[in-house]
Design a binder for these strands. Structure first.
Lengths: 340, 340
DNA sequence: TTGAAAGCGCTAACAT
DNA sequence: ATGTTAGCGCTTTCAA
C-alpha cells in the first residue's frame, strides 16, 4: 500500500516550503516556471490529490448535500433521487443520502449527525411519522444553525424554507374530472397516505371536481387507511356498493392491490370500472390493463430542488425563500375510457 | 442565524483553555467535577456538536462509505441500496452515493473524487462501460492507496478485493432445469446484458441445464442485444420459430417487453409459452400473468457487502480477501407450469 | 486540575 | 520567487 501523498511530502522532496508547493500546484503567479513544472510533474506522477477533508475544514464548505428520502422502494422517490443525483453531480456536489424509512427518529438523527459540518445543505422529504407528530424542531434548528433546507413533496407550512411541491390538489381534481368526463358516475378514493400533506390535498382536489360537477360527496367511499393490510377487507365492503364505477388511487401500491381485487371480482376495466392512480412508475405501464396515471415528474422535482439549494449556497446575497409548484400530467392508458 | 458553537467559544465563555473544554466534554478524569458540569451544561444548552470534518481530519477516518451503483431505476440495485443503507446506518456509517449510469467516466471520476479523504471505503457494482473496456486501474489505484473496495454483483477477476456475488450460473441452470421439467422442449434466452459478467454466467448456466438433459444448444435462439430497442424486431424473428415454448429472460426490462410481445402474438402463457426472468422486483409480481422469477436477494447482498467492508475497516489485522456467493431462489408464479 | 503545544492537510496574508 | 505564520476545530501528549 502506497501511503497517501501530501503537500508536506512533496515539499520535503524538493526542500521547499509547503506553501511553495501549494502555490505551484495552484498555478500561482509568484512561483518560477521551473519550480512549478518540476513540482507539478512530481505531483502528477505520484497521483497527488488535495485532501478534501482538509479543504472542507478550511473553507467551511464540503460541497456535499444531505438527502433524506422516506422510502426509496417507492418509484416516485427513486425518480426524484435520480434527478437530485444528476443535477448535484453536474454542479460539482456529492450526496450523502439516507433513507428515513418514514421514521421520525431516523430523520432527526440524520439531520443532527450531518448538520455538524458534514454537509452544506439538505434536501428532504418529510417522513410520515414526522408529519403525524408535527415535530419539526430538528429542521428548524438546522436552518437556524445556517444549514439551509429544501423540502420537496412532503412539506410543512411550519418551516420557512425553499420548497418544491407537486400540484397535488390540481392533479387529483384533473384526474377526477377526467373520470367524470369519461362517464363515471360514482367515484371512490383509496388513500393509505391520509397522514401526509399530499394525501389530504389530493382528497381535496377530488372533492373539488365532484362539486364542480354537482356530484354529492360521499365520505363512505373515501377509503382512508393507515396500512395496506386492511385494504382488501375495506375495499370489498366499499365495492359491495355496485354503483361505483370509478376509482382514484392516491399512490401506486394501493392501486396495485385494488387492481388485483377488481379483477378478481370480475369487473371489466374500463367499461364497468375505471381507474386512475398517482405516481407514474413502471408498474402502471406494465400491468394489465395499463393504468392511467398522474405523473408527478419526479426527476424534474429532484433537479429543481437541487438547483434551488445550490443557488442558495452559492449566492452572495440572502435570497428570499420560494416554493416551486410542479404541474402534474395525466397520462391516459387503458384503465379509463377515451375522452370523446 | 446562530453561528455554530465551537470549543473555542466555550473556552472563551469560561476563561479556560480549549483543551480543558475538550476534556470536560469527553468526560476525562483529570477535570474537576464542577468544571465538567458547568461546561457540559453550557454545551448542551448551546447544542454543541463536535465538528465531524475536524474529527475526520484528525482521525483520518470519515465514518463514511462511498457507494457506486450503475442504475438505481433497476429494482435489484434499489434493493441492494436499501440493504447497504440499513446496515451502514446500524454500524454508524454514512453513505456518499453516486449513480454511475453505466458510464466509465462517471465511475472513474467518482472514485477519484472520493478516495482523497472523503470516504473510508467503497461499495461498487461495476458500470457496463467499465466491464466492456476492462479498464480497472481506478479501482486498483484506490485499493493501492489504502481505500478498500467491496465489489458486488458485477465484479472482475482482475481486481483482488472482497466480493459479494450472486450464483448466477446456478440460478440460470436451475431456472432452465425448471422450465425443462415443467415440459418445455425448446427454450430461448433473451439477454441485453451480455456485456456483463453476470450475463455471460447466466447463459452458461442455461447451457449447462440443456446439456444435462441432452438437449442440443441452438445459438440462434440465444438472443444477445446491446440495447432494448432492437428487442422487438429480433424477438419476432426468433419467435417465428413456432417450436419455442420457453423463455429465459436475463433481466427484468427485457422480460417485460417480451411479455407484451408474447401476449400480442396470442401465445397462451404458460401452456404454449413458459417464462422465467431474473430479478424479483414488483413488476413480475403484478403483471398478468405473474412471472416466475429468480430472486437474487438484493437487500441481503447489500447488507453483506457493507458488513464485509466495515469489518475490514475496523479490523486491527490485515484480513484476507473473500468472495461471498449468495444463493438465488426460484419463485414460482403463473408464467410456468406447476412441477408435477 | 488545568494549560500549552503540536499536528491532521491545506490556503492565504504577510514577510523576506 | 520563496518562506513564515496563522488558522480552520479538534484531540492528545506533556508540562506546569
Amino acid at each position: 500500500m502506497i501511503p497517501k501523498i501530501t503537500l508536506k511530502k512533496i515539499a520535503a522532496e524538493f526542500n521547499v516550503s509547503i506553501a511553495t508547493v501549494s502555490k505551484a500546484l495552484n498555478d500561482s503567479h509568484d512561483i518560477s516556471a521551473k519550480t512549478k513544472e518540476k513540482i507539478k510533474k512530481f505531483a502528477v506522477q505520484h497521483h497527488y490529490k488535495p485532501n478534501k477533508v482538509a479543504l472542507s475544514l478550511l473553507n467551511k464548505k464540503t460541497k456535499t448535500l444531505g438527502v433524506i428520502i422516506p422510502n426509496i422502494m417507492n418509484s416516485f422517490f427513486t425518480e426524484v433521487f435520480v434527478g437530485i443525483e444528476e443535477k448535484a453531480s453536474e454542479l460539482g456536489y456529492s450526496l450523502i443520502s439516507c433513507i428515513s424509512n418514514e421514521s421520525y427518529d431516523k430523520e432527526v438523527n440524520t439531520v443532527d449527525l450531518l448538520k455538524s459540518g458534514t454537509i452544506d445543505g439538505f434536501i428532504i422529504s418529510i417522513a410520515e411519522e414526522t408529519q403525524i407528530n408535527k415535530n419539526f424542531t430538528h429542521l428548524f434548528d438546522a436552518i437556524n444553525e445556517g444549514v439551509p433546507i429544501v423540502l420537496f413533496d412532503r412539506v410543512t407550512d411550519e418551516i420557512e424554507c425553499d420548497k418544491v411541491i407537486v400540484n397535488d390538489f390540481e392533479g387529483a381534481r384533473h384526474a377526477t374530472d377526467h373520470l367524470i368526463k369519461t362517464g363515471c358516475k360514482k367515484i371512490a378514493v383509496v388513500s393509505i397516505i391520509d397522514n401526509l400533506s399530499v394525501g389530504k390535498l389530493r382528497v381535496e382536489g377530488y372533492k373539488k371536481a365532484l362539486t364542480d360537477h354537482d356530484i354529492p360527496i360521499d365520505e363512505k367511499i373515501i377509503v382512508r387507511l393507515s396500512k395496506k393490510e386492511d385494504l382488501e377487507t375495506v375495499m370489498k365492503i366499499v365495492l359491495a356498493n355496485k354503483t361505483i364505477d370509478g376509482l382514484l388511487c392516491l399512490e401506486e401500491s394501493s392501486a396495485m392491490l385494488s387492481l388485483d381485487l377488481i379483477k378478481k371480482m370480475n369487473y371489466s376495466i374500463p367499461d364497468e370500472m375505471s381507474m386512475i392512480c398517482f405516481t407514474n412508475g413502471k408498474l402502471p405501464q406494465h400491468v394489465t390493463p395499463t393504468i392511467t396515471t398522474i405523473s408527478q415528474h419526479g426527476k424534474f422535482i429532484g433537479e429543481t430542488a437541487t438547483k434551488m439549494l445550490v443557488e442558495r449556497l452559492e449566492s452572495k446575497i440572502e435570497l428570499d425563500f420560494s416554493t416551486k409548484i410542479i404541474k402534474t400530467s395525466l397520462i391516459q392508458r387503458a384503465s379509463t375510457m377515451p375522452l370523446i
